[in-house]
C-alpha cells in the first residue's frame, strides 16, 4: 500500500512516490512539447503574407558631419518597385562611437511616413539634432524602414566640438574622474 499525504512536510513515500513524481513530470513535459509542436505546425499552415524587402544601393552609406549644438541632415530616396502601394516610415537605430558612447538620436523625418504608388519615388529628409553634451567622435548606426524585412542603410555621423576661434576641434569624452577632480579642487555640487 502506498500512502500519499497532503502534508508537504511529510516524508515522501519512498520509491513509489518518486516514480509518481517522475511520471507526472514526464507527462507535463510531454504535454508542453506537444503543444509547442502543434503551435509550430499551426504557424506552418498559416497563410503566407506578401512582404517587402528594402534593398539599399551598393554605395548606400550615408555620411554626415556636424558640430555639437547643430544638426545634420540625411536624405533617403525610396523607390517602390512593387505592383502595390507601400507605406514607408524611416527609423534610426542607436548610434555607437568607437569610444563606447551610445547616442539615441531624436530624429525628425519629413514627411514622417511616405506613401509610394507602384513605381513611385519619394524623398525623405531626416534631421538629427546633435546634443550639446554629445562627446566628439564617429558614430555608426543604421537607418531602417519600420517593419520591413531585412535591409537598412549604414549611417556614419562625425561629431566635433567648436573651439573659441570657430575651428572644429575634437572634444575628449567626459571621464569618470571629473567629479573626483572637482572634489579635490574643493568645488561643490549644487
Amino acid at each position: 500500500m502506498v500512502r500519499l499525504g497532503n502534508d508537504p512536510n511529510q516524508e515522501s513515500g519512498g520509491p513509489f512516490a518518486d516514480l509518481l513524481r517522475l511520471q507526472g513530470d514526464f507527462h507535463t513535459r510531454l504535454t508542453t512539447e506537444t503543444l509547442r509542436y502543434l503551435r509550430l505546425l499551426q504557424g506552418a499552415f498559416a497563410p503566407a503574407t506578401p512582404g517587402t524587402v528594402m534593398m539599399p544601393d551598393a554605395a548606400g552609406e550615408l555620411q554626415a558631419s556636424g558640430v555639437v549644438g547643430s544638426s545634420v541632415q540625411l536624405r533617403l530616396e525610396i523607390e517602390n518597385r512593387q505592383r502595390a502601394h507601400c507605406v514607408a516610415t524611416p527609423v534610426m537605430s542607436p548610434l555607437v562611437a568607437s569610444s563606447g558612447a551610445t547616442w539615441f538620436p531624436a530624429t525628425e523625418a519629413s514627411p514622417p511616413s511616405a506613401l509610394l504608388p507602384p513605381g513611385g519615388v519619394a524623398t525623405l529628409l531626416i534631421v538629427l539634432p546633435l546634443p550639446d553634451d554629445l562627446p566628439a567622435g564617429t558614430y555608426r548606426g543604421v537607418l531602417l524602414l519600420q517593419g520591413f524585412r531585412n535591409g537598412g542603410t549604414s549611417v556614419v555621423v562625425t561629431v566635433s566640438t567648436a573651439s573659441v576661434n570657430g575651428n572644429a576641434k575634437p572634444r575628449r569624452p567626459a571621464s569618470r574622474s571629473a567629479p573626483a577632480k572637482r572634489r579635490r579642487r574643493g568645488g561643490r555640487r549644487r
Binding site: P50, P56, G60, L76, I78, L145
Partner: peptide, 28 residues
C-alpha cells in the same frame, strides 16, 4: 546633404505583392 537610395522589392520567399495575392491573404 548626403543621399542614399533604396528600393522596395518583393520578398523572394513570399508571394509577390499584387492585388490578387493581397486579397487572397486577407481572405485566408
Amino acid at each position: 546633404t548626403p543621399v542614399a537610395r533604396v528600393r522596395l522589392v518583393d520578398a523572394a520567399d513570399a508571394p509577390a505583392r499584387t492585388t490578387v495575392t493581397m486579397v487572397a491573404s486577407v481572405a485566408a
